[in-house]
Amino acid sequence: MKITVIGGTGLIGSRLVSELREAGHTAEPASLSTGVDLLTGQGLGDALSGAETVVNVTNSPTFDAASPDFFRTTMGNLLTAGEQAGVRHQVVLSIVGVDRVPQLDYYRAKALQEELLRNGPTAYSIVRATQFFEFMDAVMSWTSDENTVRLPATRLQPIAAADVVAALADTATGAPLNGTVDVAGPDVYPLDKLGRLTLAARGDHRTVVTDDRAGMFAAVEGDPLIAGPGARIATTSYDEWLAGTR
């Protein structure tokens, strides 16, 4: 099977291309660095030629109010080019709770991307993942200084990128869901506790201060970022992942 991975040179995309190739599929990465511009549509026709399935793991360059326009344009271009190329299955990587956090611009933008896919001309699958272990350092950097890291107690169910890749590979090579599947890690943590675990593993002596007004996740109310019933639960724990990155 030929599978084109849009955003195939990034954290998730590059690993997905490798995993699909190891399984015997023809997997091709498509990104700006390979001559494919999803915003303009340049190079899309060639990238999708002969592909049975397309997996879209691209991110908006910003998380602000400009992100809906990015996903509106890129999803439109991809659906049009896919239909013209005869693509039979469109897969998108999204976020658990994306339709339950209207306070966040980026989540509203991803919800729009999902809606466009559902209403598009091609059979589809949406894989919603929780926050990646690999992004924890970036999350802490938003609200940190040389002495403290300020984090809310928002509850998360983070997952290893490798486990997201495995779920995407299974979905891309299977029959279209024409629906959504959640994937998440095995444990739920308050974000401030995740910060403390991370700093301790890094030998970083800064103090984590619980601040329910700090950072993007401070806007989240309740437990919308926790996977729901029927989710695919990965086995890699955050402690195991931290130990492997030391």
Score class of each variant (00 low, 15 high):
T58H: 02
T58Y: 02
T58F: 03
T58N: 00
N59K: 01
N59T: 02
N59F: 04
S60W: 02
P61D: 05
P61A: 07
P61F: 08
P61Q: 08
P61K: 08
T62M: 05
T62H: 10
T62D: 03
T62Q: 08
T62N: 08
T62F: 10
T62R: 14
T62S: 10
F63A: 01
F63C: 00
F63L: 06
D64T: 06
D64H: 04
A65V: 10
A65Y: 06
A65L: 06
A65C: 05
A65T: 12
A66M: 11
A66Y: 06
A66S: 15
A66V: 09
S67D: 13
P68Y: 12
P68G: 06
P68I: 15
D69R: 08
D69N: 05
D69K: 06
D69T: 10
F70Q: 03
F70K: 03
F70E: 04
F71I: 02
F71S: 02
F71W: 11
F71K: 01
F71Q: 02
R72S: 04
R72E: 01
R72D: 02
R72H: 06
R72C: 00
R72N: 02
T73I: 12
T73P: 04
T73F: 12
T73C: 07
T74I: 14
T74K: 13
T74E: 07
T74M: 07
M75N: 13
N77R: 02
N77F: 04
N77E: 06
L78G: 03
L78A: 08
L78M: 13
L79R: 11
L79G: 11
L79I: 14
T80S: 09
T80C: 04
T80Q: 09
A81Q: 04
G82Q: 09
G82N: 09
E83S: 14
Q84G: 08
Q84D: 06
Q84V: 14
Q84A: 13
A85L: 12
A85Q: 13
G86A: 09
G86T: 13
G86H: 06
G86P: 06
V87S: 05
V87N: 08
V87C: 03
R88H: 09
R88N: 09
R88A: 05
R88I: 05
H89A: 13
H89P: 10
H89M: 13
Q90P: 08
Q90F: 15
V91S: 00
V91Y: 01
V91R: 00
V91W: 00
V91L: 01
V92C: 05
V92A: 12
V92T: 14
L93C: 04
L93N: 01
L93S: 01
S94L: 03
S94Q: 10
S94D: 07
S94H: 12
